[in-house]
Design a protein around this nucleic acid. Structure first.
Length: 254
DNA sequence: GCGACAG
DNA sequence: ATCTTGTCGC
């Protein structure tokens, strides 16, 4: 384990050099595709959900895929556990749909990381895709106090003084989210993305949906039940699609 | 030196 | 993340 961390640390430092943060803000278009990913774990099994929504709010459904976990979770090295699973999911999704995400939103950090290489950066660099990380807790220290009002932000700086992410209060009085760009996205555009997704809760709508869908998938699989073609969340139906050539004879993509 | 540490 | 009951509050 000692040696593994040493290797991973070197890898992170090398990969961090490949992370590209544009100088100008990214302007999203109304029909840009947002792919939001989340994973539920149970032993070595991973239940992955990918919510697909346009910038204008149109839902393109929620995709599900099962996979196997091979790496342990080590704080600060989360990317090496979850990254490969996310990468396989996105590759599979692109192959089955023929689409390409305009931005991938991930439950975890981007550059707001001790070596500026969170899982969102890892995926962004590995697949050369724009990515954003949104986490529930911070991994790095920050200075200052975040205002109570909804949509207040507070920058997180590294030792050099670069802004590597922000705290974002998505609702008044709730704990903030920790938002940072993963790759090819300006830090303020990462904030814009999460603000635009919005929703009624602390967790941005698409992330909350991906989380619920992954939990649902896990529960159904464990019970040996068939996956329905739609899932109702907060009173709205979302189309469910399996990213498998076959999954107990279930509805296959396309 | 000690503790804390995304999911 | 997961293991887990009741309970407080909108």
């Amino acid at each position: 384990m000692e040696h593994l961390i040493e290797t991973w640390t070197i890898l992170q430092t090398e990969m961090a050099k490949q992370v590209l943060i544009p100088q100008k803000r990214t302007d999203f278009q109304p029909n840009d595709l947002i792919l939001t990913l989340d994973i539920q774990y149970e032993g070595d099994k991973a239940y992955i959900a990918g919510d697909v929504q346009r910038q204008n709010g149109t839902s393109e459904g929620i995709f599900l895929k099962q996979d196997v976990v091979t790496e342990a979770y080590v704080p600060q090295f989360f990317a090496f556990r979850e990254g490969p699973l996310l990468k396989r999911f996105v590759e599979s999704w692109m192959m089955h749909t023929g689409l390409k995400p305009d931005v991938v939103l991930i439950d975890g950090h981007g550059t707001a990381h001790p070596r500026q290489l969170g899982v969102a950066c890892w995926l962004g660099v590995m697949m050369d895709l724009p990515t954003v990380g949104c986490a529930k807790d911070t991994l790095v220290r920050y200075e200052g106090t975040l205002a109570e009002a909804k949509e207040s932000i507070l920058p997180i700086l590294n030792a050099k003084g670069d802004t590597i992410g922000h705290l974002l209060r998505t609702q008044q009085g709730v704990k903030p989210n920790f938002v940072s760009s993963g790759h090819r996205i300006h830090q303020m555009s990462a904030i814009d993305l999460v603000k635009n997704i919005g929703g009624k809760y602390r967790i941005p709508e698409t992330l909350r949906r991906a989380d619920m869908a992954a939990r649902f998938f896990q529960k159904m699989e464990k019970s040996g039940l068939l996956i329905p073609h739609k899932l109702n969340i907060d009173g709205n139906d979302f189309k469910l699609l399996m990213l498998h050539s076959a999954f107990r004879g279930q509805n296959i993509v396309l």
